[in-house]
Simulated assay, not measured.
Amino acid sequence: MALGGVHVDREWIGARASVTFTFLVAVLSVATGIANISAAPSGPLVQYVPELVQQTVGFTGALTGFLMLGSAFGLRSGLRSAWVSTIVLLPVTAAQGLLQASVYSYPLVALSAISLPVILLNHGRFTRELDLTATQLAAIVSLVGAQLYGTAGTYALREEFNGVQSLTDAYWYTIVTGSTVGYGDITPASDRASLFAISVLLVNVAAFAVALGVLLTPAIEARLSKALGKMNESQLDLLDDHILVLGYGELTEPILEELDEKTQFLIVTPESERARTLSERGYSVLTGDPSDEEMLEKAKISLARAVVVATNEDAQDALAILTARQLNPEIRIVAAATHRENVNKMKRAGADTVISPTTIGGHLLVESALGGEDSEAIADRILGEDDERNRQR
């Protein structure tokens, strides 16, 4: 991609980069906030920022970092609301870094400034609306309701509690009771207050249990999807500038090993057992027919860099090539033909380059047998192994 005449790798400005930058800003914001809580200000702005502001933004910086983590996970799911929150929070993290008036804050300010244009460039990639289920709504309502119940009730009964004088004290008591920390600084002084404290504990524990179940359910579903060799919608939404590997066969294995070291790729295979095995090895897999239009659209063929087709079934490969070419006329398609007579057929189907491994292997063996260059030397040169050996020498 060219920006202002300068070529920029899409991996640095794509949707995945947006998620990565947001996550890094979040971690750095938390770390910087914690570091600046106890560190003495030492930056060039220290004389212009009041000490109270410096201390305050240390705490708020850490809190903003945790909010940014939530935005990063939302971006990973393709949520539009997460994109909006990230755009709002990035200037906040940069401003907090400046107000912290510390040399530790400079990386946070710089990374926030770099991340903002990347997020803005990908506004069209995060379009999924936040669709809360009934369970998720119940979890939110139960959490908020439990906090309101505990805070309002404790404040109303403040005369019957030791140490409650304000709403802040009442909220503090609700939090430490619901979390079962129980510091002991606030205690009930009557039977009615004790009974109310028990109810606060039960209500908060139940609310947290519901929320925990809501949080764990998507994680369990994602784990099951991975075990079954499937990708969820949020993972598919982040595909960009990737290689599509259509089908799997004996010829595909060395291709995967080579791609794994160089770029992002997605395998589309109809065999569920094979998909599960590949997924367990850490590969991105989509279970489905490689020649199905809907499946290739789901695999984001419109955003893919290239297509690789190399199984042992030339007829199926030709059909997959034909479908891929129809869906994306501009994409580069590379294929391997098991039988030499099928090379031209695959090219007519739409492949840009077709290689016949058996033909190449036969040619190398014949050349070696007739006294030409050794076939192993040729193979080593193709694989770059000669260069590696020369470097080792």
Rank of each mutant, 00 (worst) to 15 (best):
R223F: 09
N328K: 08
A337P: 09
P357Q: 07
R332C: 00
P254E: 09
S291V: 05
E297D: 10
I321R: 03
I255R: 00
E250K: 13
Y283A: 06
E250M: 11
G249N: 08
E253Q: 14
K230A: 14
F265R: 04
L256D: 08
L239W: 06
R340K: 13
K347E: 14
Q264W: 05
K347H: 10
N344H: 09
K262I: 10
T359M: 13
I267Y: 00
A275K: 02
T287E: 05
V309G: 08
V309Q: 02
S284H: 10
V343G: 03
T263G: 09
S356D: 14
K230C: 02
T353N: 06
E293F: 05
L266V: 15
A306V: 05
L224Q: 14
S284E: 09
T358S: 14
I255Y: 03
D289E: 13
Y283P: 06
Q235N: 09
M231Q: 14
R223Y: 10
I333A: 02
P254T: 12
D237E: 11
D237T: 12
R281V: 02
L236T: 05
E297C: 02
V245C: 07
L251W: 06
V268W: 00
L246S: 07
L228Q: 14
G288V: 03
K345M: 15
I355L: 15
E294R: 13
I355T: 10
I355H: 01
D314L: 08
T277H: 10
P357L: 07
G282K: 11
K347S: 09
I331N: 07
I267P: 04
L319G: 04
A335R: 00
P329R: 10
L256C: 11
I321A: 06
R325I: 03
E330W: 00
L236H: 03
E258R: 13
R340E: 14
V343N: 04
E280W: 07
E313M: 05
E294A: 15
A324Y: 00
L296T: 01
N342L: 06
L278T: 07
A306L: 06
L278F: 11
V343Y: 04
L238T: 08
G249P: 04
T338D: 12
E273W: 10
T359L: 15
T269H: 08
L256V: 09
G288S: 04
V343K: 02
V334I: 15
K345W: 08
K300D: 11
R276V: 02
H242Q: 14
T263M: 11
E271M: 03
I333P: 00
E280R: 15
E294D: 12
I333E: 02
T277D: 11
P329K: 09
E293Y: 09
